[in-house]
């Protein structure tokens, strides 16, 4: 069964424009100009129940806007979406009881008082029976190791503790769909590992669909068999993480070891020399010409060893994030 389906989802925003300087401020006091910006441009995706999907793109690519439309916070300018069988922006409570949105920089926990109070509030908001509440809370507290954090005011918790409490608050009602926006933002390496392990476990245990955005490569590589890449609001790639490389990288890497020194300049006509250590060289070669160039290399140079590799996935993902 499909968990998420969108068709040509599009969202425009109006942003105010101001000329620089004091005079600009005075002018905009009386006459403000607006500019239309297309944040999400005709995005169509389908996600099956129980999938764990990574949603990638540079800052401002439109990831968060898409997540907000899927959770019903924003009404799209045009296009359609069906999430868990509902149109999200109608905000039906039958829909809201079955999903959750966690934003790494935001918190729904009350700052001055213990997290347990916010959990109780969510219990009454989601209408959970005492028995369900106790059972779910117990499970989450175990999985997230929250035992010591429940009765301390939230402002006294560390960032990692707060993020885990945040997850618990969002998952008390056992949502079938979880939208995660930067869940590991600002956490240290150990804590990131814990949060990742938890996400994986939650997905497996509850057959929950999870769509997550992250700037943390390890999150993507470790968690997401499938990724969706978005750039300037447009869908760029949707498929297995493994194939992202062949789609995205227009070149491969040839590593060669020689039995005597070779000058970098002599190799330049075969590809871009990335590394050159006299007896070793690493070349970037356009995808279509790999075999021809490798043959030339073997014929023209004293090659002892030669390997052909794909560009590492880290590089690809990093390039997507930095938008090159």
């Amino acid at each position: 069964m499909l968990s998420i389906e969108t068709r040509a989802l599009t969202k425009n925003f109006s942003v105010p424009e101001k000329d620089p300087g004091l005079w600009g401020s005075v002018k905009s006091l009386f006459n403000r100009r607006w500019r239309q910006v297309r944040a999400v441009d005709s995005v169509s995706i389908k996600i099956e129940e129980g999938e764990l999907v990574g949603f990638l793109g540079a800052n401002g690519a439109g990831k968060t806007t898409t997540l907000k439309m899927l959770s019903g916070l924003l009404t799209p300018t045009s296009g359609e979406a069906v999430v868990l069988g509902h149109v999200p922006w109608k905000r039906k409570s039958a829909f809201q009881r079955r999903f959750s949105l966690v934003m790494g920089q935001r918190t729904q926990l009350w700052w001055e008082i213990p997290a347990l109070e916010t959990f109780r509030l969510n219990q009454v908001i989601y209408g959970l029976s005492d028995a369900d509440y106790k059972k779910n809370l117990g499970e989450l507290v175990d999985l997230l190791e929250l035992q010591d954090c429940l009765s301390v005011p939230v402002k006294k918790l560390s960032l990692g503790q707060r993020m885990r409490a945040e997850l618990a608050a969002a998952l008390l009602h056992k949502p079938a769909l979880l939208l995660l926006d930067e869940p590991t933002l600002g956490l240290d390496v150990v804590m990131q590992q814990k949060v990742r392990a938890f996400i994986k476990e939650y997905n497996k245990r509850n057959k929950a669909t999870i769509l997550l955005t992250s700037h943390n490569m390890d999150d993507v590589v470790e968690l997401c068999p499938r990724v969706i890449v978005i750039e300037l609001g447009r869908l760029l790639y949707d498929g297995p993480l493994a194939q992202l490389v062949s789609r995205y990288a227009d070149h491969k890497i040839i590593r060669a070891v020689f039995d005597r020194e070779v000058k970098a300049a002599d190799l330049a006509h075969l590809g871009t020399v990335v590394e050159d250590g006299g007896l070793k060289a690493v070349l970037q070669v356009p995808r279509g010409q790999v075999s021809a160039r490798a043959a030339k290399l073997l014929q023209g140079f004293p090659v002892v060893d030669l390997t052909i590799d794909e560009v590492p996935i880290d590089d690809i993902v990093r390039r997507i994030f930095t938008h090159k």
């Binding site: 916070l73 809201q96 009881r97 934003m103 935001r106 729904q108 969510n122 989601y126 209408g127």
Partner: peptide, 13 residues
């Protein structure tokens, strides 16, 4: 502006 309203909107209340 802090985004608390986002949470109000996605919860069944």
């Amino acid at each position: 502006s802090d985004g608390d309203f986002d949470f109000y909107l996605i919860q069944p209340c």
